[in-house]
Amino acid sequence: MTAVVETEGLTKFYGTRRGLEDLTLEIRPGEVFGYLGPNGAGKTTTIRLLLDVIRPTSGRATVLGADTRDPRVRARIGYLPGELALEGRERARDYLQFLADVRGGVSRGKIDALAERLDADLSARMGELSKGNKQKVGLIQAFMHEPELLILDEPTSGLDPLVQQEFLAMVREVRTSGRTILMSSHVLAEVEHVADRVGIVRAGRLVAVEDIAALRERAVRHVELHFDAPVPAESFQGLPGVRDVVVQGASLRCTIDGRPDALIKAAARYTVVHMVSAEPDLEEIFLTYYSEEEARHAHAGA
């Protein structure tokens, strides 16, 4: 099957400021793609290019097989802007109905069902909604017409934890029904439980695209071992994939990259009474992409 989103050398300069440079990316049907990066990385720029709000300096992009310039394709996309603004005296329900009408209608009761799930008050005037409630209205309009592709720019910003959980459930349902989601975020933790793949963008460039499953494998792990008697530190020096070793009497703390095999074999010479291994911290491996030096180091090591 063809890609849902396909970009080739997509580049956007705002005057001389770089927004995005040379993005080549493919998002496959049915996947949840997390688009990650720090402030000013180029996430919103990418998304606005895909929705034809801004125009590329060079390169091209297609969405659902159509050129981004084709307005008809946007009826099949659900979009949540990163800087969502809702204003005025209009009631949220009337505004949603207007959006639904222009997109060719939504199935009956869909708006109310979503409002109930997200606990949103649609009778309020939009200018009087709190930030989180605006975000809910934004989510409802993005999901309500059951689009084939959802493009969500920082969807969880402003939402309380309960609503965030509900949102993630909605994302999973969309994936189950075979539809595709592109969502941006600053933190991996926000998307790691729903995303199939993540792309990491930094200073306008895509620095990595990773499978979440593969990322988990490569993740660093903090391990703590407790022995029945003090152990010599030397026995744990220079083990492959083991670093930051700290031995204090009968306990040892260290960090392992990848397989724990060498550490287990070294520890097996002593009596282990207790072992703690924290959940793999994807955030940490993710953060290494943020620092160029470490990224280069990772390349050299690979």
Partner: peptide, 15 residues
């Protein structure tokens, strides 16, 4: 300027 145009623009209506 108030950013409310963005969502209108992403409706299936040509500019």
């Amino acid at each position: 300027e108030s950013k409310t145009l963005e969502l209108t623009l992403t409706l299936p209506i040509g500019r």
